[in-house]
């Protein structure tokens, strides 16, 4: 009885999830009348705007990841080591982006950092790019911080630090040669997740008027029929790859840990 119910739930659920994937794939292959073809993909990949916006978003994602790691790892480490009492407050701050919709945060940016303000970041394109990276870093903050903090929890940060200090290591060495390698898997997981979030992000990029992949997809969606479906397939593949990489690094770690 329960078994049948469980199977029914699972199969209906799978249908719901698979049909849109089938739908978008089918649609993306149907550009030429009557036969399946890769025309939609050729058009997309040949479009210089695709290459520009995609490249731009990849760049933004990488910048966000680097900035996020440099911000989160030392903070999480220091909090674990010296300021345990402050942890709940820091954690609360990192969870705020789940409460405050991205559109509100970027709204604040536009008003707070416009050309007539004290820090006119939106005045130049470099400044706006920087602002977008910071915005993306806030979006990634809940995931990044949690991943790294969980990674640190399994380490004995205090003992590790003392051991490194007794061997004469300075703070830089401790952070980059002792702590970072030990939370590498957590950092990588956070990084891939950040990549998946940032690559197709729409709201912030569109409102800051950046030539990113998300707004490009939206514009294309408003004007074309088949290419958007091809874009959806590509975006899905990227998301899948990011999640796959997370699983891969986690599994690799388990193996090395078990082997050690």
């Amino acid at each position: 009885m329960t078994r049948i119910l469980a199977w029914v739930a699972l199969i209906l659920g799978m249908l719901y999830f698979i049909l849109p994937l089938v739908g978008m794939t089918e649609f993306s292959l149907s550009m030429r009348r009557g036969v399946y073809s890769l025309d939609a993909y050729t058009t997309i990949l040949g479009d210089p705007r695709f290459r520009q916006t995609f490249g731009y978003s990849v760049l933004m994602a990488v910048a966000t990841i680097i900035f996020g790691v440099l911000l989160v790892v030392p903070t999480a480490y220091w909090v674990r080591l010296r300021l345990p009492w402050i942890r709940p407050y820091i954690e609360f701050i990192t969870l705020l982006p789940l409460v405050i919709p991205a559109i509100v945060i970027v709204f604040g940016y536009i008003r707070l950092y416009n050309t007539s303000s004290w820090l006119p970041l939106t005045g130049s394109s470099m400044g706006t790019n920087l602002l977008l990276v910071f915005g993306y870093a806030t979006l990634a903050l809940p995931y990044m911080y949690r991943a790294v903090d969980t990674g640190l929890r399994t380490l004995d940060v205090g003992t590790l630090t003392e051991a490194a200090q007794s061997l004469g290591a300075g703070w830089g060495t401790i952070l980059f040669r002792v702590i970072l390698p030990n939370v590498l898997v957590a950092v990588l997981s956070g990084a891939f997740l950040t990549f998946a979030i940032v690559i197709g992000e729409f709201t912030m990029a569109a409102l800051l008027d950046r030539p990113a992949f998300g707004p490009f997809m939206q514009i294309l969606g408003a004007n074309r029929a088949y290419e958007p479906a091809a874009l959806a397939v590509i975006a899905f593949a990227i998301t899948w790859a990011c999640m796959g990489l997370i699983q891969l690094v986690t599994r690799l770690q388990k193996h090395t840990r078990a082997g050690a």
Partner: peptide
């Protein structure tokens, strides 16, 4: 994590 613009495309298709 498959949200946003591409998700809309998938359902439109």
């Amino acid at each position: 994590n498959f949200a946003g613009v591409p998700l809309a495309f998938a359902f439109l298709a």
